[in-house]
Amino acid sequence: MIQAGEAIPPFISVIYNSPLATHVRESEITFPLLQTFHVLGILLMVGSIAIVDLRILGVVLKERTAAEVGKSLLPVTWVGFIVMFLSGGSLFAAQSGKIYDNIFLQVKLGLLLFAALNVVIFHATTYRSIASWPVEGAPRSAKAAAVLSLVVWAAVVVTGRYIAYY
């Protein structure tokens, strides 16, 4: 329901009033179920990304090569990403008319874009040489990408939580 004096941007209105978004918004079980999957997605996606990043930084799983850690865990990360994308997309669509101007939602979306770009750039450049990284440590650009990844994903979780309060 739109308050007087507030105009929802047309493309948001189309999403907000779509059958899927409306069903989710008015549902008894679907919405809470999506919220549940969204939390489990944090476990899957952020958890596995954190371990890969920590390995690149030489903090954890030092007995395995960074290449092996990446190869083993990236599929888990992808499953997590799909869970987050589907649940998050649905949760956003259902609430879009009310939260599109929420500052935390906007920052979160910006951070997600940032994180995605970081991943794409990393995989197109530094990650390609992962098999030849010296045993002593990953190249500086890889470590920088890993730190950025940890910080940005943590910020995504935090801003996501704050959406509900403001």
Binding site: V39, L43, V46, G47
Partner: peptide
Amino acid sequence: LGLALLGG
């Protein structure tokens, strides 16, 4: 965030 670490 703790959940991500513990869960991961």
